[in-house]
Each structure stands twice: as C-alpha cells, then as structure tokens.
Amino acid sequence: MTISRRNFVKISGAAMALPLMGSSAFAQVEKIKIGFIYVGSINDNGYNYAHNQGRLYVEEKLGDKVETVFVENVPEGPDCERVIRELAQQGCNLIFATSFGFGDSLVKVAPQFPDVAFEHATGYMSGPNIGLYNARFYEGRAVCGTIAGHLSVTGKAGYIGSFPIPEVVMGINALALSGRRINPAFTVKPVYISTWNDPAKEADAARAMIDQGIDIIAQHTDGPAALQVAAERGIVGGFGQGADMSAFAPETQLTAIIDHWGPHYLASAEAVLAGTWAPGNTWEGLKEDVVQMGPYNAKVPADVVADAEKIKAGQIDGSFHIFTGPINDNTGAERVAAGVTMTDAELLSMDWYVEGVEQPA
C-alpha cells in the first residue's frame, strides 16, 4: 500500500529527533543542478506550489550558478524510483524528494549514486547521502488559534484534516491549546477526508461544519475550497494552508500558514557548491523563516493582531512553546505536567488530542 506524504510511522518521531550519524565527502562545484520531485501539481495553491516557490527562490538567489529541473504529479510508488534515477542520470548534484511516500524509492536509488546529495521532506529513513528536512507547521497553528480564540462567536472551530497522523494531530492540538488560552470554552472539531487535495470533499466538510455552528475553519489540506465555502456562507473566517490563499477568499482568510522552503533549499544548494554538504536532519519553523504567517485580514482587530504577533514572536525567540504543560487530553487525563515542554520525539509521535478537541468519529 502506498503511504501518503507526511504519514509518519511511530518510530519516525524518535528517528527525526536525533542527529544523523556519518557523512559523505562531496567535491566543490562551480555550478549545481538540482532536481525536485512533486507528488502533485505546482498549481495546487498549497503544498506542492510552496515547494516549487522554494525552487524559484534558489534560482533567484544563485543565478547562473544553478540549474533546476522538476517533475510534478509523480505517484508515490514504483514510478517515483524511475524519476529519481533519471534525475541522477541527468547530472543532478542535489535531488529533493518532497513527499513522504517517496522514501522507499529514495533509499533504493541513493546508494547507486554516492556522489549525489539527496534530501527527503518529512521522512525518517536516512543514509550516507540522504538528508532529512521538515517544518514546524504547528507553530503557525498556534498563531491561528490565537486569532480563532478571540474572534469565534460560537467558540467552535473546525479543522479539516487529511489523515490522522502526528503532523496533523499536532496542528489540531496547537489550534485548540492556543484558542483555549483566550476562551477556555473554545472547542475544535476535526474531520478527516483521507486525501490531501479533493476540493469536493473539502467543501462538503466545510458545509457540514458550518451547519453545526462552527464559525472558523482551519485545514490541513492543500486547496482553497474550504475557504471559498466559508466565504459563501459568511462565517467569521478561516486560514490558508501552505500558501497565501487570500486571492480565493479575500474577505474570509484571516491569515495563512505559508511554507517557505526557500531558505532550506538555498542552504543545501550552497553547501553542495562549497563541497561541505552532509546529510542533516532539520526541523525548522518561524525562527528560521521556513514557516511564515500571511498578512492579517483588515477585519482582524488591532489588539488581536498584537496578541497573534506576541505568540509568533515568542516562538521565534524561544520564550513560548504551545506544547508546554500543564496539558490534559480530551479525556481529562494529564499528559504534560506543568512547566514541562514536550520533546520533538514526543511531538513526532503524537496520537492523542488535547482538552477541547472533539474525538473524531
């Protein structure tokens, strides 16, 4: 069975939290060729679009020192192995596999090209020439939850998720914890649609939520359909995911979590150029500018913007972490003691919901 991207198995939390051992020696080069592999279209207005913006960022920064190529709509399966091999054979010095489900193919092909640097987004299987990278999307959820807690009239938010995997569960919990900091009665209803991008399913889920009194919708799917439904129904608002989606719902998007992969891609490219690349394991967020927040809607009051910016700044300077206890789960049991901050390994294996999150059906 094909594993969807970002579908972490339990062991991945511990694996990703530890530094990788070993490195490969790569020669310095004057020009680099980089290959990018996308599971979807660069025009999905979300996850794949954001990765492609990172590719363009590298081109802008490195100019004639870099050549980039990309292959989009690559299924997570045997075809991916072929694409990775062809990119290496075409002379790519560095290849980014941007979907979790590409991992099995990557670990098969990489040993055949020891002089090529490979990096896998949201993966956990490393190697002498395979690095890992991820983004702390949950930090953006904490900012969104602050806005939701202030602005929701009903105190009910909805969260359209793809799959119940740690990355998505983290986002749901961060939204709830942040919202309940403002309104202790704030609740979040998650609905999983078992896909990353299906406009019809996203729209149907949004309509059902609104019918149940939910007036703010967050999402962990790739398209703007939920925001468009929110605009049609005139609820308080929602949040863009992966990219700024305000063009699709200019009066409804309150802000957006933007995946800004450019800085990471640039750093890796520069390391290959300098001959200093080694297989790393990065999980970066607001501080590193890999997670960004989109513009605040003009209808968000100034005091709410100020509170959201305070949460954003606290995560950047390290003075605030949304997963610092006391934290109870949605059965009332204490999961994190007062003053204790969850480790990366614990976050990357999170499979429980915090207080205020409705248990999914």
Rank of each mutant, 00 (worst) to 15 (best):
K61M: 14
G223C: 14
S246P: 00
N183Y: 10
N129K: 01
L106R: 06
V109I: 10
L227P: 00
N7Q: 08
L151Y: 13
G223R: 04
S23P: 01
G318C: 02
P326S: 04
L175E: 07
Y133A: 03
P78A: 03
Y192G: 05
I217T: 11
N129T: 02
A27K: 14
L273A: 01
F96P: 04
R55H: 04
A243N: 08
P326R: 02
E309I: 06
A200V: 14
G240L: 08
E59Y: 12
I258H: 09
G155T: 10
D198V: 03
N328S: 12
E67V: 04
G127M: 01
A269E: 08
H260D: 14
V83Q: 05
D351I: 12
I214S: 07
E67W: 06
G179W: 05
K299N: 05
V169T: 11
Q89W: 04
T122R: 11
L266W: 13
P360M: 11
G101H: 05
A333E: 15
A333K: 12
F100T: 03
M342W: 10
I130M: 06
D244C: 08
A157C: 07
G213D: 01
G140E: 10
S23E: 11
F8W: 14
Q359T: 08
I34R: 00
D104S: 12
G40S: 12
E60R: 15
K310G: 08
L151K: 09
L266A: 03
D198C: 14
P360A: 13
R335D: 06
N7A: 06
G234W: 03
P279Q: 03
N43G: 12
H321S: 06
N173E: 04
G294T: 11
Q241E: 13
S178Q: 09
M1H: 15
G149Q: 05
A218L: 05
P301C: 00
C144M: 12
N183C: 01
A15V: 11
A203R: 08
E232L: 02
N134K: 03
Q241P: 00
V66P: 00
L254N: 15
A203H: 10
P111N: 00
T255S: 06
F320P: 12
P295S: 03
A243I: 02
R85P: 12
C144V: 04
A88Y: 15
V74S: 02
I160S: 07
I258P: 03
T341R: 04
A148N: 13
V109K: 06
E167P: 07
A88Q: 14
G77H: 01
L273M: 03
N197G: 10
L62G: 00
Q212S: 15
Q53P: 04
F102G: 04
G356P: 09
H120G: 01
K189A: 14
G240A: 11
G123T: 01
E59N: 11
Y296E: 07
I193L: 13
V66H: 13
G145L: 03
V304W: 15
Q253W: 09
R6A: 14
N45Q: 15
V29T: 10
